[in-house]
Write a protein that binds this DNA or RNA. Structure first.
Length: 393
RNA sequence: GGGUAGGUGGCGGAGUGGUCAAACGCACUAGACUGUAAAUCUAGCGGCUUAAUUGCCUACGGGGGUUCAAAUCCCUCCCUGCCCA
């Protein structure tokens, strides 16, 4: 790949929109070393494949010698969400933030080079500055402009509250760009407004405007909504190989192409090929198996991915028992229900009772019918389709 | 500050004294079918308990009260939307 191609790939592959593409392209060609900004809240430090879409783009920049600047939005997290509904977000302590940030970078380190990354906490500036600065920044934006944001508009129509903090949020994010003198900001398309606010603020504060790269939002496992932890439709970058593989297999057919591009990182030609195969009527399962192996390998290596594939085939296509299932210890005569609850395989006795009634609990391949089923000898227990456990005595 | 409508399970949303662990839909879990896809059908979906939906406990914004009995009535506090200023 020559340089020209690399740049093209950098700005085109997998991106949703680039503002302003020409300008950015020129700067890269000129050989400027750019400061590439990306930020995250240290609230839920579990990274999933949706985050990975953005991180991989950062990595590309990093590989071309640009400086990635990462901002931990600890200030926002510390302030907490003031909308005092039933679940006010608890203020995070400094330790929690530090801990979350650490976890975050451990996970992000699977994708970007942390050594070469410049890291800032935005409390560095927000904690020092006061109302004077807030007003100065706020004075550069109009209410109309901020309320134009489509999600605000929608919420106003729907009668859902919008707190002042949320209104100020884009300004804070914009100010981050000013503080670290960002040349480029990368984020999801949902960040468009905030990132553009960064441009506005930089300009009004006499600085060159950052360019903005928007990455598509990855659709979650349900095939409908964006991947997010709270919706439970995600694959975490630290998910075990078998889980990761299985989850990829469970995605609906209609998002195969999207995932192939964004999550599996297939090249342009490969994507065309996959499209053709699907058109020809090949069983989408085959493509998913390849893709699942590829994605699993990205986070766990080739070997683990291959064994996850074998495990999957064994388990679901041949309906055999997987090789390495967790073992739990028990005493002869213990009630199976209690054992499963203790080991958190089943949530409660009531749930266990229901599962047994539904014929969902197998002991050595036979569904059990007695909820008082006692363990008499080492037994392989299956709960539902994918919960396996070996009970030892 | 004034007026007005509200706060029910993960979400949406019924219910306005007993038959309410709370209709219905979504989400979710299981079973059948399958490609752990989709669609479909069936069952379940607070907890403990029993041979058994048997018995019990906790729950309808918080607290207090009326009643044999409250999500439903009263008092009080908190919170939110909308309109007006």
């Amino acid at each position: 790949m020559d340089n020209e191609e690399k740049i093209e790939r950098l700005l085109a592959r997998g991106t949703a929109e680039v503002i302003e593409k020409k300008h950015l392209e020129e700067r890269i060609k000129k050989g400027d070393k750019l400061r590439i900004k990306n930020g995250a809240d240290p609230t839920a430090p579990d990274l999933h494949l949706g985050h990975a879409v953005i991180l991989r783009k950062l990595r590309e920049f990093q590989d071309l010698g640009h400086q990635v600047v990462f901002i931990i939005g600890d200030f926002t997290a510390r302030v907490g969400d003031p909308s005092g509904k039933s679940a006010t977000r608890p203020m995070l302590s400094e330790e929690e933030i530090k801990k979350n940030a650490k976890t975050y970078f451990e996970q992000a380190g699977k994708i970007i080079d942390i050594e070469k990354t410049e890291i800032h906490y935005n409390s560095e500036w927000f904690l020092k500055e006061g109302w004077a600065e807030v007003l100065e920044i706020a004075g550069k934006f109009t209410v109309q402009r901020v309320l134009e944001r489509d999600d605000f508009e929608r919420r106003i129509k729907a009668g859902v509250e919008i707190t002042m903090k949320e209104v100020l949020y884009p300004l804070m994010q914009a100010y981050d760009s000013v503080k670290i003198r960002a040349d480029v900001e990368i984020g999801g398309t949902d960040q468009k407004f905030n990132m553009l606010a960064g441009r506005t603020l930089q300009r009004k504060m006499g600085m060159a405007e950052q360019d903005v790269i928007m990455m598509p939002i990855l659709t979650g496992l349900d095939g409908e909504r964006k991947m997010s932890k709270s919706l439970g439709n995600y694959i975490g970058v630290t998910d075990a190989p078998n889980d990761m593989f299985g989850k990829v297999m469970s995605i609906p057919d209609k998002i195969i192409m999207e995932w192939a591009e964004l999550a599996a990182d297939y090249s342009g030609e490969e994507l065309v090929e996959i499209g053709k195969r699907l058109e020809r009527g090949e069983n989408p399962r085959n493509i998913k198996i390849e893709m699942a192996e590829r994605i699993t390998a990205m986070y766990h290596g080739k070997e683990e991915a291959t064994s996850a594939k074998e495990n999957f085939i064994k388990l679901f296509q041949k309906k055999e028992i997987p090789d390495d299932i967790p073992e739990i210890a028990a005493e002869k005569g213990d009630a199976l229900g209690d054992i499963l609850i203790e080991n958190k395989i089943v949530a409660s006795k009531s749930e266990f009772r229901r599962l047994v009634k539904a014929g969902a609990v197998d002991a050595d391949g036979e569904p059990i019918v007695d909820i008082h089923f006692a363990i008499e000898r080492p037994t392989v227990v299956k709960v539902g389709k994918r919960r396996f456990v070996k009970v030892k005595i």
